[in-house]
Structure formats: structure tokens, C-alpha cells
Amino acid sequence: MVNPISRRRFLRRSLVGAALLAVAGTVGRHLSGYTIDERLRLRVLSPKQYLVLAAACRRLLAADEPGAVSVDEVETALSIDRYLAELPRELQRELAGLLELLEHTPFLFQLRPSRFSRLDAAAQDRVLEDWESSRLPFRRGCFQALKSLAMVGYYGDPRAYAVLDYTGPMIQR
């Protein structure tokens, strides 16, 4: 039988519990290393997924050519988060899962005690090359999905047109 509790006691317990959870969440995020500026206000991705995506975009786009606006300046990963908000929830979940898989690929497929977002650039490139040229259609499909997202996030921004010498829309609206 459940012991009845008073309204005041219930509220007190709830508030204390919520406070503890908030503290634990903050500590947990710091310990995991997946911390982001809270002003970003992500709509779909978790901080972890966002950071993995940002790391992947830097390698997929490698926008360090002269005249190219940087991936971070365009806020590519944030732009992708906004795009994901327009997709069906099931698809959002699938793409978020893809980022989790990418993050843990070094451990799962290469038995390296590391994570994608913590690898150096050359090692990250090798992971992406593995996905791109995999004999498994699923992994190639994951690579193509990730690459397409990166292109939506970066080349959807007019600041990226300069590197292409693309004239852009004819009309001003």
C-alpha cells in the first residue's frame, strides 16, 4: 500500500528532486565533456549530438580554402538542427542515432578507446572515408546522409556562395 503524503511534503520533495536532477545533469554534462553554450537553444539535437555533428561538418566541408567562410562562422551545425526540426520525428530520431553511431565508431568498429569528436582531424577523416567506401550499403547510406546534412547547413547560407562564384537568386525578397 502506498503511504499518502501531504501536498506540502510532495511539493518539497519534488522541488528538491528537481534541483538534484538539474545539478546532476549539469555535472554529468561537464564530466562527459559535451557542453555547449546554452544560448544555442537546440531544437532537435542533444549537446552531444550537436558537438559530434559540428566536428563531422568541419571535416566534411574543410572550409579552410582561401575565401571560404568557415564552418563555424556559418553556424553549420546549428543550421542543421533548425533543418532537422522540419523533419518527421522518426527521421529526426534516425539521424540523431546516426550521430551517436559516428561518435562511438572508433570504439565499436576499430576497438579504439576514443570517440569521433575527440580524434584528431586525420583520424576523423579516416573514419569518414571508411563510411564513404564501406562495402555495407547501410554505412555508405549513413555517410551520404551526413554529407547531405552538412551541405544543407553550409551551402544553404548565402555567405558560402562566394567560393562557388554562384550568382544566387535573381530576385530580392
Partner: peptide, 9 residues
Amino acid sequence: FGAAHMRQL
């Protein structure tokens, strides 16, 4: 992808 991709672009 990456720098080679952007050079093509």
C-alpha cells in the same frame, strides 16, 4: 568530401 571536395566546387 573535405578539402578535395571544396577544390572541385
